[in-house]
């Protein structure tokens, strides 16, 4: 009974800021400019298949890179004790205290043709690289901005693994590779799944990163949606339809992933 009372503000919050906007999105998606009910927005969505494909591909690549960098980092930090760990956690959190837009802008200045990295390269006699305005730069921006959301959940899960379980495995003759493969990794999967959710969803819907680091040369889903609300093409109905389809695809992805990780613990499914 007690816990129900505590949940009330949360339920109200969810109703006002999650459920109500969702209803608005659905209403917009199925209506026209003159508010007549229509399915046109969905039937013409095929022309944006390339945008969908590209957005999901880049978000997928960014998520994989985040796992490859984030998992080992979280693993070693979780086993580390003392000052190094505190310092490392601080360094991971520190950029998040800065504004997201500002962080991305600073990458523009780093990667620009006469930016920091290229000046460094030419100072030591190497040719300049054209990094900015490529898909690679967009993925870099996603990884940089969202990496902490991969590291932190994995870290907190690995840290909580009971050391006695690992000791038991060692007592039974498992070498460290086997311990990792049979014990640590399976037990850390829930963290990985949470991390994937928290990196993949913002990556697939980002628009600032692709605008600034991708040079605005190729639209991502976020750009396409933003265009319908604040950009050159004012059509909130189409924007809502695209958002809705994106949400459904993301939900399916998450559902598949949960099935994949079943029995090991579930990722968050909104």
């Amino acid at each position: 009974m007690k816990s129900k009372g505590i949940a009330i503000p949360y339920v109200v919050w969810m109703a006002v800021f999650v459920v109500a906007p969702l209803v608005v999105v659905v209403v917009y998606a199925f209506t026209n400019r003159d508010w007549s009910v229509t399915l046109d927005h969905f039937t013409t969505l095929g022309q944006y298949a390339g945008v969908f494909g590209r957005s999901f591909l880049l978000a997928f690549v960014a998520t994989i890179v985040c796992i490859l960098i984030g998992y080992p980092l979280a693993y070693f930090l979780a086993r580390e004790r003392g000052r190094l760990r505190g310092m490392a956690m601080l360094l991971i959190m520190l950029p998040m205290w800065m504004n997201f837009l500002l962080r991305t802008y600073s990458w523009v200045f780093l990667l620009e043709r006469n930016g920091f990295f290229n000046n460094l390269l030419s100072a030591i006699g190497l040719p300049k690289l054209d990094i900015i305005n490529t898909s690679g730069a967009v993925v870099l921006g996603m990884v940089y901005n969202f990496l902490p959301f991969m590291v932190l959940p994995i870290f907190s899960v690995i840290e909580k693994i009971d050391p006695r379980v690992i000791e038991a495995a060692q007592d039974l003759g498992a070498d460290s590779a086997t311990v990792f493969r049979r014990i640590t990794f399976p037990l850390s999967l829930p963290g990985v799944l949470s991390g994937i959710t928290m990196v993949f969803i913002p990556s697939v819907s980002t628009f600032v990163i692709s605008r600034l680091l991708g040079g605005g040369k190729t639209l991502l889903l976020g750009d396409l949606i933003e265009m319908q609300f604040l950009g050159s093409a004012y059509n909130p109905h189409l924007g809502s339809a695209i958002s809705l389809v994106m949400m459904v695809i993301v939900l399916i992805c998450m559902g598949v992933m949960n099935r994949f990780g079943e029995g090991e613990g579930e990722a968050v499914l909104l």
């Binding site: 490529t134 898909s135 690679g136």
Partner: peptide, 20 residues
């Protein structure tokens, strides 16, 4: 038409798999 043509410029020209 401006909207749909603008999206055509920003989508069909991109090399879908060209990550770099």
């Amino acid at each position: 038409l401006y909207d749909s043509e603008w999206i055509r410029l920003k989508t069909t020209t991109g090399n879908f798999w060209g990550l770099f």
